[in-house]
Amino acid sequence: MSVAVHIRGLRRVFGTRAVLDGLDLDIERGEFVALLGASGTGKTTLLRILGALDRPDSGTVLVPEARTIVFQEPRLVPSKRALGNVLVGLPRGAASRERGQRALAEVGLTEHANAWPHTLSGGEAQRVGLARALVREPELLLLDEPFAALDALTRLRMQDLVGDLVSTHRPAVLLVTHDVDEAVRLADRVAVLRDGTLITDETVGARHPRDPADPALTALRRRLLTDLGVRLPEEPGGAPEPDGVRQPTEGAMR
């Protein structure tokens, strides 16, 4: 594989605070990387720099020209139907329309091509946004907490859909998320951002589909939660934690 994203010494300062401070990161073509971190640690700033929506103050940032972003909100144009939203910015004509229809078919929305945004559910609207991103055949797909506003069941279905689409199209992917389970479920690598740099960058060795009860994934999840500053109880047989410390619930890091 060749490198799709190459970052060295990235620094981004707001006022007197360095949100990103000497960050290094490589993402291979076809590789799925999930980025975790507390709110305000610079995850979205990094994604915006990679998507050319912000600029670094210093450092090297090399990314493919063909890149797209899927945000937490679908950001659909209210005056355009679903297919029109997929085709925003593309040349008019039969070829683009056919590409758009194929993209909607891939996300399971063939019958919703003529639907107005206000008639779509949250999951359907987000699928339109995903089709809009993939129809451009990006070499780099940037995902900014795209499932955070969805209910739990729809979120799981969208995770499966994104996993399948990424396997088919093979872009490099950077997913920004607060959800440790989501990161471990989807990504080839999981990184943790703190104090402007990556303090963790681990490969997820398990094959897809992944069993959440896999002991290796359970151990990885615990390490990631610890790196995120979550205090966990000892494993069975270990020393007890101080009174009042509990295992986080499933949604603790969302």
Rank of each mutant, 00 (worst) to 15 (best):
T154W: 02
P215K: 05
R221Y: 12
D160L: 09
A172G: 08
L156A: 09
T197C: 14
G196T: 03
H178G: 04
R194I: 00
V230I: 10
D195R: 13
I199E: 14
P171G: 00
R223T: 07
R194E: 05
D160A: 15
L156R: 05
L174G: 01
A149S: 14
A149D: 03
A191L: 15
R210S: 10
D151W: 10
A149T: 00
T200I: 15
L165E: 01
E202I: 12
I199Y: 11
H169I: 03
H178Y: 11
A187I: 06
P215M: 12
V180I: 14
H169E: 04
L186N: 05
R185N: 12
R222T: 04
A172M: 12
R207P: 00
D211L: 12
A183G: 03
F147N: 04
L165C: 05
L193Y: 07
T218A: 10
R136P: 02
L150S: 04
R194K: 08
L193A: 02
L225C: 04
R155S: 07
R170P: 01
A191I: 05
P215A: 12
E139L: 14
V176H: 10
T177E: 03
P212L: 13
T154L: 08
R207V: 07
A152R: 11
T168K: 13
V166K: 06
P138R: 09
R194Y: 08
E137D: 15
L224D: 05
R223D: 09
L153M: 06
E202V: 13
A152H: 11
V192I: 14
A219I: 06
P138M: 13
L143G: 04
L175I: 05
L175N: 04
D195C: 01
G205C: 08
D201C: 14
Q159K: 02
V162M: 07
H208K: 09
H178C: 07
T197E: 14
V166Y: 07
A219F: 13
D144N: 01
M158E: 02
V176M: 12
G163W: 09
R210M: 09
L142H: 03
R185T: 10
V176Q: 04
H208A: 14
P138V: 11
L143H: 01
D214Q: 08
L198R: 08
D227Y: 12
L225V: 01
H169Q: 04
R222I: 03
A187E: 06
E202W: 15
S167F: 07
S167E: 10
A213Y: 03
L186D: 04
L175R: 05
P146K: 08
T203W: 10
V180T: 10
